[in-house]
């Protein structure tokens, strides 16, 4: 039976699959950035649908900071195996050598491990198109970014000089050394992501669900003590560890990702809590607040995803 209108999730899914196929048809060396979060999970699922029965014809790239949650590393390795895709893990050797960490180095931590790490990895492997899971509803400067976002040879983004993007026609042409970042789920909202995960049983990191976990307070926020010995070493003292029922709305480096106290242990409960919450999902992250109202825009011009 055909119905006159597809649902919004069917349309969003078709749009993302169409975008992924365009990239594979037109780029020389595409890669999918995989951060193991819920948006990455949806991206990976969409990629598997887009190219079925073939496995997605590109590798997964995890730009690692070494400070991710243990559960994230576990799911990452499992998903790479199940999808039949190559998994590339890149850790910026300079950040490694200098012992860059989120406690002592603040913004430099993100800059060195993620921004610089990403640029180094893309250059190292010569990728000319990188899929990212950014959404336009996340942050104001993303609202104006194209789906095919062009980058100069030095990975710069010029918001004033973006290519017009009409209909569903994407211009993937570029000169040698230049690259494009592609955002197939640009038009999805946080709720769409959750709903899609729910409907399609997309595997996600268990940390999104509430459970009793060891926590500590730092800088006025609640964090999970994922690796207590390492934490103690960097902090120089052993923080007071308290068992609490917590979950995460967004996942990044464990010392940078604030937890929320919660009892939402199932997906519908998580969605319920998400919808009833009164703060936006990026609020738990430090990165948007630098440089006045334009933190993300500055980061993006420097090459952050």
């Amino acid at each position: 039976m055909t119905s006159p209108s597809l649902t919004h999730l069917q349309r969003l899914e078709a749009e993302a699959i169409h975008i992924m196929r365009e990239v594979v048809a037109e780029a020389q060396a595409p890669v999918m950035l995989y951060s193991v979060g819920k948006d990455s999970a949806v991206m990976l699922h969409l990629a598997r649908k887009a190219f079925y029965p073939a496995p997605p014809p590109f590798p997964l790239l995890h730009v690692d900071t070494t400070w991710k949650f243990q559960d994230m590393y576990a799911l990452r390795d499992r998903m790479a195996r199940e999808s039949g895709m190559d998994l590339l893990v890149y850790q910026n050797p300079e950040a490694q050598a200098r012992g860059i960490n989120p406690f002592d180095h603040g913004a430099l931590h993100t800059d060195m491990w993620k921004t610089e790490g990403l640029k180094q990895a893309l250059d190292l492997y010569g990728f000319d198109a990188a899929f990212g899971g950014a959404r336009r509803d996340e942050e104001k400067s993303r609202a104006k970014e194209r789906i095919f976002s062009f980058r100069t040879a030095s990975h710069g983004w010029d918001p004033k000089n973006q290519r017009p993007e009409l209909w569903n026609l994407y211009n993937a042409r570029k000169n040698k050394g230049e690259s494009i970042r592609v955002f197939p789920i640009s038009n999805w909202t946080e709720l769409d992501i959750w709903q899609y995960i729910h409907l399609n049983d997309v595997p996600i990191v268990p940390l999104y669900f509430a459970a009793v976990r060891p926590t500590y307070e730092w800088d006025g926020q609640l964090f999970m003590a994922d690796d207590i010995p390492r934490l103690e070493k960097v902090l120089g003292y052993r923080p007071e560890i308290v068992e609490r029922s917590i979950r995460f709305r967004t996942l990044g480096c464990f010392p940078l990702t604030g937890a929320v106290e919660s009892s939402a242990a199932t997906l519908p409960e998580v969605i319920q809590e998400t919808l009833l919450t009164t703060t936006s999902e990026r609020q738990g992250r430090v990165i948007d607040k630098d440089a006045g109202g334009a933190g993300m825009e500055v980061k993006k011009q420097q090459g952050y995803f």
Binding site: R136, K140, T189, L191, D192, G293, A294, E297
Partner: peptide, 29 residues
């Protein structure tokens, strides 16, 4: 909705920005 820093300074919208909202019946872009 006036996103980019330059736009905020000038008080004008200079590029296409996409916004999202839902009601019970529809998602809107």
């Amino acid at each position: 909705v006036d996103g980019l820093a330059a736009e905020r300074e000038q008080g004008i919208t200079i590029d296409v920005a996409y916004r999202f909202f839902n009601t019970e019946k529809r998602k809107f872009i």
